[in-house]
Nucleic acid binder design. Structure first.
Length: 285
DNA sequence: ACAAGATCCTGAACGC
DNA sequence: TGCGTTCAGGATCTTG
């Protein structure tokens, strides 16, 4: 469920609750999904960062100064349905308890994850063996590391463009919703292979624009389904109101009025405009 | 090397 | 109302 905009929104919202606090306990079952969390106990959260759809809490010793380097990373992946909440509930999978800070701030944060696809692990900084997607993560779409020329060059050799984006290798953080939205904006068919330079440039720009707008809107919250993304305080994102194709099968394309089509590509629901996004056969030469 | 499929899970929505 | 089927925003491992 959560893609870059939802994970970034989560980061911004929970960082003030965690920064500077010492972790008193991390309680959960299913240790294979939440690895080495005991290493976080007694450590201070120096800050929260994000890579693609992964959140990482920087941990240092409890007596570390504010600007000391962290020596552990507490990595969180929200999976399809994970999110942090201020209250526990039937789908609470992990309970994070903080040492009192004397300011009366909340002492617990609950990781809620109905489908249990979320994962956590405490590792030494940068040690991402066992997390191949994170280890091979492409550049952040909203950073200076995301370079148009590099992206266009890679896209010329790529297979079907949507699965290629979902691999997280050409660029990080793009999931099913934002892949469909970016491809619609760039007017490229989701199954198109071997993008032209013009297509690659349009897609590069579209990804940056769509991601920036979605982050500004606090991400997308969809329907009432099990995977409905919510912020820790129960608030919804607003970007679902800006969707042009995702979840709009049978409704008119905002650009040309043709009915939006939904198909399945790489086992993912895929929405596009059959008139604006035309597939062209481009065999490997 | 790459693509396609199966797998991990649960619950909401839909059809009969 | 009740039951079975289908579907869901992701990552990863196996198979071809």
């Amino acid at each position: 469920m959560p893609e870059l905009p939802e994970v970034e929104t989560t980061r911004r919202k929970i960082e003030p609750l965690l920064r500077g606090r010492v972790i008193a306990s991390v309680e959960h079952d299913a240790p294979h999904k939440y690895r080495d969390t005991h290493l976080a106990v007694g450590r201070r959260v120096q800050g929260l960062s994000r890579r693609g759809k992964y959140l990482m809490l920087q941990l240092a010793s409890a007596d570390a100064a504010e600007d000391d380097l962290h020596d552990l990373e507490f990595i969180v992946h929200l999976g399809m349905t994970g999110g942090f909440r201020l209250d526990s509930g039937p789908h609470t999978r992990v309970t994070l308890t903080l040492e009192p800070d004397g300011a009366g701030d909340s002492q617990q944060l609950f990781f809620h994850d109905p489908r249990r696809f979320g994962k956590m692990a405490v590792v030494r900084p940068g040690e991402y063996a066992g997390m191949p997607t994170l280890a091979a993560m492409g550049p952040e779409p909203l950073s200076e590391d995301f370079i148009e020329g590099d992206f266009v060059r890679l896209a010329r050799e790529a297979g079907a463009v949507k699965p290629w984006l979902l691999s997280q290798k050409p660029v990080s953080g793009v999931g099913n919703i934002y892949a469909d939205e970016s491809l619609w904006q760039a007017q490229i068919h989701p199954a198109q292979t071997r993008l032209t330079a013009a297509e690659g440039q349009r897609l590069y720009t579209a990804i940056r624009e769509v991601m920036a707008q979605a982050v500004d809107a606090g991400g997308s919250s969809l329907g009432n389904g099990v995977g409905n993304y919510r912020q820790h305080d129960g608030l919804s994102g607003l970007f679902q109101h800006e969707h042009h194709v995702y979840g709009r099968a049978g409704q008119p394309c905002p650009r040309c009025g043709t009915d939006i089509v939904k198909t399945v590509l790489a086992q993912r629901g895929t929405h596009f405009c059959p008139k604006c996004q035309v597939f062209e056969e481009r065999p490997r030469s």
